[in-house]
Design a protein around this nucleic acid. Sequence first.
DNA 1: CCAAGTACCTGGCTATGTCAAGTACTAATC
DNA 2: GATTAGTACTTGACATAGCCAGGTACTTGG
Lengths: 123, 123
Amino acid sequence: MAENDPQLLKGVLTMVLLTLLAEEEGYGYAVVVRLHELGFAGLAEGTVYPALTRLERQGFLAARLERSSSGPARKYYRTTAPGLDELARSRRSWEELVAAVGQVLESPAPGNERDTSKTKKEA
Amino acid sequence: MAENDPQLLKGVLTMVLLTLLAEEEGYGYAVVVRLHELGFAGLAEGTVYPALTRLERQGFLAARLERSSSGPARKYYRTTAPGLDELARSRRSWEELVAAVGQVLESPAPGNERDTSKTKKEA
DNA sequence: CCAAGTACCTGGCTATGTCAAGTACTAATC
DNA sequence: GATTAGTACTTGACATAGCCAGGTACTTGG
């Protein structure tokens, strides 16, 4: 589980959070732990909490507080209906990206000339 | 080919550019056109050129100018040896990310309780 | 009382994609 | 020969979102 490239994560976290919290309600701390288990190794709390707050502010997550006997109150989040829409959109973008990247990475043969000018007369 | 999420592209572009320019030399404008064909629909010139410049500055790409009869001189880039190393690292991160995201998206059954506290006594 | 585990929040930093505008060369048209 | 359109590259100001460091606060146990 190597260090994840911070940049690669961008945008992905939103989708991941909406997915997890659509399946079942959860609170920040637990989500962080879960994500570490799922392969998002270096993921910091300072990344997840602001993301949850943002998604709530955007109406994609709903939150409720619940007292806990093992520490401070937990903020449970659940994906809302607009959140599900956003998730669907997000997944589509993700799949397109994966497809496009796949096409580049598994590029078959480097034999086709690419020249935007129609090769009328070249230097 | 829907609008790509700008955030999702982050970090990916670097990898894609290093890949394309490792296969064969190319100049910015042509790369932009090529990427559009490959599924990176909304990709702007203003995104690609700075990326190329950055990669050159970092030593991952080498550049040379070539006059053209169809417009201003073209700046041809080719991936360097360090660029190939970076590409390898980058691909690894990407594959890990795709795997991790895959695990979340195709999450099988939402039945397992996840609670960081060992359920000693819950509210 | 203090430490450690749980749980959340914030400010400042950074990286990078986007937009808009600009420069400049060539060829074709009027 | 000035204008326009296509080719080709650059840049500055902006927005987003992840990261780090540090802070707050509740609970339990020594």
